[in-house]
């Protein structure tokens, strides 16, 4: 496990952006990014894309097929309150 920490993949960077990493793994990705211009630049761009997409929520969900699928999936999540199912998604944020 210890030596695997040094193998940083593209997917690790995404996991980092999405706040999925903890502890040593996160530190390893940070160290990796800190030393590499291109991956760092991309990581920052992905962060901004997340932000863009959130602002563009309404436009994105004009895709009827996508919107209905997301709604269906989130409804399934709400219907199965096994864990701490916090209200989230379309219902909570509404559609401005």
């Amino acid at each position: 496990m210890a030596d695997k920490i040094h193998l940083i993949t593209e997917q690790d960077v995404h996991a980092y952006i999405d706040g999925e990493l903890t502890g040593d793994r996160r530190v390893a990705v940070e160290a990796f990014l800190a030393e590499r211009e291109v991956p760092l630049h991309r990581a920052a761009a992905y962060l901004r894309n997340n932000f863009d997409l959130r602002s563009l929520r309404d436009e994105v969900y004009q895709d009827e097929e996508l919107r209905s699928e997301i709604e269906r999936l989130l409804a399934r999540r709400r219907a199965a309150p096994d864990e701490e199912a916090e209200p989230q998604g379309l219902a909570r944020q509404g559609r401005q």
Partner: peptide, 24 residues
């Protein structure tokens, strides 16, 4: 961004929406 997103395969759009927009 909207157009780039629109061109993604449907399955990719779904995952990106769930994670990036819905915060799952």
């Amino acid at each position: 961004v909207v157009e780039g997103f629109r061109d993604l395969p449907h399955n990719d759009k779904v995952v990106l929406s769930l994670v990036a927009i819905e915060g799952l």
